[in-house]
Computed example of a mutant assay.
Amino acid sequence: MSVEAWSAVAAAVSALAAIVAVVVAFFAWKATKNAAKATADLTKIEARRWHHDLTPQFTFELGPEAGDRTTLKVWFNGPAALGELTVSVTIRNDKPRNSTLAGSPSQEEIDAQVWGPYRFVPHVDGADQHGRAAAPIKLLPGDGRQFSLQRTIAPSWTREEWWRDEFKYAPVRVGLRCTSGDDDPWTVYHEVPTVQGTPLEGRLYAAGRDTDGG
């Protein structure tokens, strides 16, 4: 075989080796990338599981009622690993409410109204002017806080009798946004039953964990 032929063979072998090296490097990179993605996915799954397992747990006590006033006590039961928790409590509507009919109140007026049996007493416990939300509080596991509530006032566009009947047996629906350090926040929802028409007995309602909304 001539020198030229050997040179051509050597060049071809060298090119093939280079191609093989590129292919091997590509599959090694892909395997590394897949392994990194699998590790990242597993880390996310574990982080979500850890976050779910640490969902704050609360207990509530409602009552007794005096006139149009009552109290809502909120206890932070744990988990103890969370340490101090910052909690923002809001009162939620019975259901989504929208302005859809001609001549109906505006969406702004609807949003300002608390649609339920009770609201926070405005400007008490740091509550806003509508009685929707109280100022954030800090709780350690085992600590509790009492909030002042009053019966919601029927808006000007409806009748008082209808309003009372509408929410006669409705629960107090609360949402709690909880933060602890640099952890992602938790949003926890609960319904606290009420007894309308008679004085409310002080009773405890152990709350389950629900972080999916509602």
Rank of each mutant, 00 (worst) to 15 (best):
S2M: 05
G103C: 03
R49L: 09
P193E: 05
D111K: 14
I110K: 07
A25K: 06
D182G: 01
T32G: 13
L140I: 00
D41R: 15
E201F: 03
E61A: 01
Y118W: 13
A15L: 07
R97N: 08
A206C: 02
T90P: 00
T158K: 08
N93T: 06
I153Q: 13
V87E: 00
A47P: 02
V114R: 08
R209W: 07
K138Q: 12
E4K: 14
A102I: 06
S2L: 03
A80I: 08
L140K: 10
D53G: 07
A31Q: 14
K44N: 07
P117D: 09
L42T: 10
Y205S: 03
G142V: 10
M1G: 15
L85C: 06
A35P: 06
S180A: 15
Y189E: 07
M1D: 03
A206W: 00
Q146M: 07
T198W: 04
G67L: 04
A15W: 10
E46V: 04
T43A: 15
P79R: 02
A206S: 10
F167Q: 00
A28Q: 12
P155N: 02
D94C: 02
N93I: 00
V124F: 05
G214E: 08
G144M: 04
T158V: 15
P79T: 08
A207D: 08
V172A: 03
T100H: 04
F26D: 14
L72E: 06
L101E: 11
G202I: 07
W6K: 13
L16Q: 14
R209M: 14
Y169F: 05
S2Q: 05
V3M: 12
S14F: 06
T152V: 08
E161P: 00
Y189H: 11
L72N: 01
A38W: 02
Y189M: 05
L176Q: 09
I19L: 14
T179K: 12
T39C: 09
L16T: 09
Y169C: 01
T70C: 12
